[in-house]
């Protein structure tokens, strides 16, 4: 068996150009498959997530310089966030020793799934693991003790579709908000952020209506977020699975064609070995080694170049096993039918 494996590796050297072509083909194919399916699946997941979400989001556009009555505007928002709704804004807090701190101020009735830690106080301060040394923070001249250090990411990071790490971030969560105590009525950017990041529980229609009425002033134009699955995307997504299957099948077919060429070229040598005592199993191991080594090299390069992610290896293992099995299924009966002595005379025809 070791001899067969060694001969398989030697075949790669003898067929180095074919092997190289195949590696390039495989990487190209994988690149296309991975990038296409990855983006399409993300799209699909996003749509499904959107459909499944309990909370409604809003599209917000700035149409004016400032709200007519900023204080009233913030007061109305405070009322909205008392129950079944929340929002957040992103600000920089200045710390004496470590400079600016990325801070999220979250107002309202925050869903439990967003933060693992139970939030019981009106104002809770959470910090990322990179800021574990901070014991208290001062906001608007008032000191607040840090309640908890977040270990790992929280669901919060996905709120605005930004998969940011929470390591160096501060979260101030205010459950019964009086926004005016925290935000200056002149800070229009924060007002815009709060409206843009508002989420309201889907079943609370009254709150949604109230919110839209309050915020649609000369300052902002706010609409309910449109569902993403327009007809075009829905059409593409409907066929993503068959598309993936077709891509994989063509990958297998091309592999079979390319490597069939290799077998044709080496059939004379295989016949010679069979005449001198090799079993079909020996030839099979040799050819499979040829395949496996090339596929391993391709996969290795794919991982090195970042085309293939380690967590996707199972997929490639499955694909490569499929390719090998298909090819083995074609090769074995072909070899059985061969007239070995004729192959030695004519150079071999398979």
């Amino acid at each position: 068996m070791l001899n067969d494996i060694w001969l398989g590796i030697k075949d790669i050297w003898n067929e180095k150009w074919l092997a190289l072509c195949y590696i390039l083909f495989f990487l190209n194919m994988m690149f296309i498959v991975v990038s296409t399916t990855d983006s399409l699946y993300r799209e699909k997941m996003e749509i499904e997530q959107q459909k499944a979400q309990d909370y409604k989001k809003f599209e917000t556009y700035v149409i004016g310089m400032q709200p007519e009555q900023p204080e009233e505007f913030l007061k109305n928002l405070s009322d909205i966030y008392q129950k079944n709704a929340f929002s957040y804004c992103h600000v920089q807090l200045q710390a004496k020793t470590i400079g600016a701190l990325d801070t999220y101020i979250v107002f309202g009735d925050v869903p439990k799934k967003l933060f693992e830690k139970k939030l019981e106080k009106n104002v809770s301060i959470l910090v990322g693991s990179g800021l574990a040394q901070i014991r208290e923070i001062t906001v608007n001249g008032k000191k607040y003790k840090v309640d908890s250090v977040i270990k790992g990411d929280t669901e919060f990071t996905t709120l605005d579709n930004a998969t940011e790490f929470t390591d160096n971030k501060v979260f101030i969560i205010i459950s019964e908000p009086q926004i005016l105590e925290w935000v200056s009525p002149e800070n229009y950017d924060v007002m815009y952020q709060l409206v843009k990041n508002t989420q309201i529980l889907s079943k609370d229609k009254d709150r949604e209506t109230q919110f839209l009425r309050n915020v649609n002033t000369g300052f902002l134009d706010v609409k309910k977020e449109k569902p993403k699955d327009t007809e075009e995307i829905a059409f593409i997504l409907k066929f993503i699975d068959p598309f993936l299957v077709i891509i994989l099948l063509s990958c297998m077919l091309c592999t079979t064609l390319i490597l069939n060429g290799m077998i044709k070229k080496r059939i004379r040598e295989f016949s010679l070995h069979l005449i001198h005592g090799a079993l079909l199993t020996d030839i099979f191991i040799r050819v499979v080694t040829f395949f496996v080594v090339i596929l391993l090299i391709s996969t290795g390069i794919g991982i090195f170049l970042g085309i293939i992610q380690l967590e996707e290896l199972w997929f490639y293992a499955l694909l490569e096993t499929g390719i090998i099995l298909i090819f083995a299924g074609i090769l074995t009966p072909k070899l059985k039918r061969q007239n070995y002595s004729l192959n030695l005379r004519d150079g071999g025809v398979i």
């Binding site: 001969l7 005449i275 005592g277 090799a278 020996d282 002595s341």
Partner: peptide, 30 residues
Amino acid sequence: MNEVFGFVFQEYALVEDDTVYENVKIPLLY
């Protein structure tokens, strides 16, 4: 086929890419 027979063919039936050693050792592999 491996132990009892020794085959000689008209057109040599050698692996052209290989050395003499590689060709002669084929029956020994099995």
